[in-house]
Design a protein around this nucleic acid. Sequence first.
DNA 1: AGCGTCATGTAATGTGTTACATGATTCG
DNA 2: CGAATCATGTAACACATTACATGACGCT
Lengths: 196, 196
Amino acid sequence: MNGDPIASPLTLAVMGMLAQWPQSGYDLMKLFESSAIGNCSSSPGAVYPALKRLEEAGLIAGEVENEDTLRPRQVYHLTPEGDAALRDYLGRAITREDVTRSGGDVILRFVFAGHILGAEEAARILAEFADEIEAYLPELEAEYRGFPEDLPPFGRHGLEHSIQHYRWEVEWARRLAAELLAGKPRKRSRARDAHG
Amino acid sequence: MNGDPIASPLTLAVMGMLAQWPQSGYDLMKLFESSAIGNCSSSPGAVYPALKRLEEAGLIAGEVENEDTLRPRQVYHLTPEGDAALRDYLGRAITREDVTRSGGDVILRFVFAGHILGAEEAARILAEFADEIEAYLPELEAEYRGFPEDLPPFGRHGLEHSIQHYRWEVEWARRLAAELLAGKPRKRSRARDAHG
DNA sequence: AGCGTCATGTAATGTGTTACATGATTCG
DNA sequence: CGAATCATGTAACACATTACATGACGCT
């Protein structure tokens, strides 16, 4: 127990998906296998233990479906405590850590916050995400400028990748946040656009 | 033991850094703490066990510096086997997994390949990276198009983020690969550019 | 004398990966 | 009937995180 039962991206994904509608472990496995949401592991050795942990923490509860038949399924749903914990987690401010750590789940939090808390909260997450990146970028740029001249330039290329990637994230987050707050024109066909 | 001693980004980062020059565990901790390269953990509980594993695998060897004084340090360097293992690892083709998994170490591999194997190999990694993404993108786009209309659009926004991010990665990789093969004009001041 | 840094580690814990294990059902 | 899928799990292993632990050195 971490103090925080929603610790890993997988746990967050499970909670967020169960917030949409009740599902079984198998459903979640299939979902993570077929969908790119969260890049979560679809192995039973990850999903079932996670469900058990969340159930022991009182955040989800399982009900047996098709009890009399020979193929029962445990269908899990959020408990009121689980719903509260998820809302609390989604309501937290985005931190430097969220930006820095590689497997950051900010996008997942944005998606679920949009579903559960509404567009304004989702836009808030995007704005905080952009803010944190913009607070972090000067340090990266300083490191870039301070990169030793005599070393081969590939480390610098790696830094440049980070910097430009973060700048792209800021632009994406700011643009989408503005769209969400403006009442989102053109819902579809955005993935076709150029990304500059 | 995994069969593959260079399994995690941390291990790769350690090997790559030791390939530059011999360093102690403390040096590596300070490096990972101060630098953004690889976003590696700088905690002793990660670095020292990693060094021990690599030493047991015969890929690195430590020599005691300041042996007579009361503050000795273990300075590690690559063994010939370690050098071979690193070159082998860097020479491997980029896979779908490398693209998909969140903590992907492709950029780290690019950087070290540039240092150790030269610009052509680094450009090859970038090209394979872009190729793999372009093979993956149609699946993401299909998932995007197939996204249920009746659901709230935030899951779609998450997918759109992935798609546009991957497109950005392709452009970045292709551009840098071309520069490297062309003999890289203007080494500096690239991090200032727009990223379109 | 005390604090920060150098320098090394260990222990508990949580969690993901891989592989294995079981049995029913559905489809061809 | 055999293969794929539904549906659930367990066990061994590797690895990162966090916290703890030790002790010397340098500066004020």
